[in-house]
Design a protein around this nucleic acid. Structure first.
Length: 277
DNA sequence: AATACTACCTGCGTGC
DNA sequence: TGCACGCAGGTAGTAT
């Protein structure tokens, strides 16, 4: 499900529901979800561990336990669900954390793309996926000069470049489309052809869209009872994503959908013109 | 080194 | 109804 705002909403849900709980047992039903260590070690090491807090970096969740840290990525459809008492598992429940008080946290993932990795305390920051992440899309971390330089170095289309997490962390298919609409940039515009002024506008758009979506609790596309982070309402503020055929809120031209780097891409053909350089 | 394509999975809607 | 196909909020591995 998640891009940065949704993962942040899940993080808050986890803090409010499972912070301070101690693990009694871990069940794993789809082994590939656990990247490392081996399943038995993963299960063994977590027994008796207490959840001290849950952090986020980009789209990754970082669970801080007493002696370990767990990096968790939800990829396309991963969800955490919390239950007060044991209940029958459905076919898409792949990992179950049972706490000493009888409550449980279930990792649910229809497409099984999500991953978890357990590392020793203090070692999560060495996890490969976290090492290659760009800055958080907030004013304090996201440096304009550096952003400009990175874009100048690449002739790749701006959309796939923003999706790769290395220049800035946390954007996915929904928010990239929204950001490019707000900044009036065509998704296929080569990064190194953006003017200094456009890059400045793009940076502000990224910060603004992510901040607003975080405030709204993310975008909810499918509703799932009990799933943490499914209460968002940013879908009411989308201008292009999923709005094919609907008039652009700025100019009235119908929003179109095209394919860019194999991803469905929404844009206003009037506001977002490809600029020849 | 940077870039593009594919694999990883399941379910749903569409068109024949 | 059945079936093939394309599509879905993402990333890692592989080939060029």
């Amino acid at each position: 499900m998640p891009e940065l705002p949704e993962v942040e909403t899940v993080r808050k849900g986890l803090i409010s529901l499972v912070k301070g709980k101690t693990i009694a047992k871990v069940d794993v039903y789809w082994p590939r979800i656990i990247e490392f260590p081996e399943i038995e070690i993963f299960q063994q090491q977590l027994i008796g561990e207490t959840i001290e807090t849950v952090d986020r970096r980009g789209k990754y969740l970082i669970f801080h336990f007493t002696h370990y840290e767990m990096v968790s990525h939800l990829r396309m459809e991963g969800k955490y669900e919390y239950f007060d008492q044991p209940r029958p598992l459905d076919k898409h429940s792949h990992v179950r954390f049972i706490f000493t008080d009888g409550t449980e946290l279930i990792y649910h993932d229809v497409r099984k793309f999500g991953r978890m990795a357990l590392l020793k305390k203090g070692m999560a920051k060495e996890y490969k996926g976290l090492l290659q992440l760009g800055p958080e899309p907030i004013d304090e971390d996201f440096d304009l000069l550096n952003f400009k330089q990175q874009l100048k170095k690449s002739s790749t289309m701006i959309k796939p470049l923003l999706l790769n997490q290395k220049i800035v962390a946390g954007l996915g298919n929904i928010y990239v489309d929204e950001v490019l609409w707000l900044a009036k940039i065509h998704p296929e515009q080569p990064a190194d052809t953006l003017s200094a002024q456009t890059v400045r506008r793009l940076r502000v758009a990224i910060i603004e869209v992510i901040a607003k979506a975080k405030e709204a609790g993310g975008t909810t596309i499918r509703t799932y009872l009990n799933a943490l982070g499914e209460a968002g309402h940013f879908q009411q503020e989308l201008h292009v994503y999923g709005q094919t055929g609907i008039p652009c809120s700025r100019c009235g031209t119908p929003i179109i959908k095209i394919k860019v780097a194999q991803r469905g891409t929404h844009l206003c053909p009037h506001c977002q013109k490809l600029k020849k350089v």
